Amino acid sequence: MNSVSAVTDPASPKVLEAHGSAGDQLDFDHVYFAQYVTAQVPHFTGMARGHTVRITWENPRHTYHSQVITVGTPGTIDIRIPRMEVIDSIGHTVKVFYTVRTAPGTTLIPSRYLLLHILPQPFDLLAPTLSSDQKTVSVNYSGMTTGYTVRVRATANTLWESDTRPVQAGVTPVFTLPSDWRTNNRGADALINYTVYKSGSGERLMFSKVLRTRIGEVTPAISENFDDIPTQLITVGQRIALSSMTITFLSGNGQMGISNSLTYPPIPGKRSGQLLHLCYQALTAPQRCRIDLKSACSRVRFWQTWTDEATTTAFFYNTAGQLLGERTLLDRLLTPISSNSPQME
């Protein structure tokens, strides 16, 4: 039986491999051979059998959500974060938190954040670049010089590793992805990165950030710039039809739609120009809208520009109406929301 016990302000998680007085630093060298690190959900106030929890590991380039775990006997819960998510976070601060659902269909309750600092390597290794035809991978990072070697690794349904090349100043190494690997992994999500080694040093490898792509699906980009769209405000049941999408106001009160930033002064790079404005006026009831894209997409990316002391949750569905995932946004920040789904509600 599911419980609806009150859960208020859940405490932040821990990462068991972290160090420092606040447990907020992680040296990749300390977990170099590990396949994962462990994020621990504490025994938070109100935790009860039947609750579900999920860890979110959010670095500036990608957000990873763990599997959803159902609480049995209340107590700490250990959840694994894959090694590649740690590698992709080297040199960055990661926001680690969990969400709690007390019963099916109830609102997600976010925990406090752990801001985990992943210590940098000697080189800041950018993600590799994949050619538009997905046949070649290029490596380029600041400080490329002789005396080092580089090697590429691509993981999808199967693993491919390149030969090892010497690094030459001013020369961009280019590696060819084998045609049979591309064929065998067509339609699969791939993680591609590279390692750099100081020749003859005996030191450990340095790892690049991760390129994430879907193999064999090169879909033209579709974009919508609200700056060129006149103000349009709608009420429940109405919709706005744009060239790339239809926006439908599903429930709530007041108005929503395309508008400027109201009484707020424009902030360059954030709340300037026209935008899709939820809760156009100061309202206490939540609003729900649905965005239907008019073309098939392999990946969708939106920008959440402002939350104004509120919580926004995006639900991603496929064309069959199946829920693929969700993301709750809390910060008053410019934040990307991305999914592999073709529809967002």
Rank of each mutant, 00 (worst) to 15 (best):
R271W: 10
V236A: 09
R214C: 07
L278I: 02
I258S: 08
Q238T: 09
T248A: 06
G252T: 07
S179E: 14
A310G: 14
P220Q: 14
N225T: 15
T319P: 07
T284D: 05
P268Q: 03
T284G: 07
K198I: 13
Q274R: 08
V300E: 10
Y280E: 02
S298I: 11
R299H: 13
N225G: 11
I234M: 06
L323A: 00
Y280M: 01
I291P: 00
G252R: 01
Y317T: 13
D189T: 12
S244M: 15
R239C: 15
E203D: 11
A310L: 14
L211H: 03
T213F: 07
P265V: 15
V196P: 02
G237T: 08
Q238H: 09
S208D: 04
P286Q: 00
I258W: 04
C289R: 02
T195F: 06
T319E: 12
G216Y: 02
G273A: 02
I215W: 03
T195Y: 00
T305K: 06
G187A: 11
G254E: 07
T319S: 15
L283T: 04
A188T: 11
S199L: 15
D308V: 03
G254Q: 04
S201W: 03
P220Y: 08
G237F: 09
F302D: 03
V218E: 13
T213D: 04
Y194N: 03
T305N: 02
Q322T: 14
L275W: 01
N260G: 15
F316Q: 01
P178K: 05
P230Q: 11
N185G: 08
K294F: 13
Y280P: 05
F249N: 00
R301P: 00
A285N: 10
I234L: 08
C289Q: 02
L275N: 02
Y264N: 10
G269M: 01
E309S: 12
L275E: 00
I234G: 04
T312C: 01
P268A: 04
Q274I: 09
N184H: 00
M206I: 08
M206N: 04
I234N: 03
S259M: 09
A310P: 05
S261W: 14
W306A: 08
T246C: 10
G216D: 08
G257T: 09
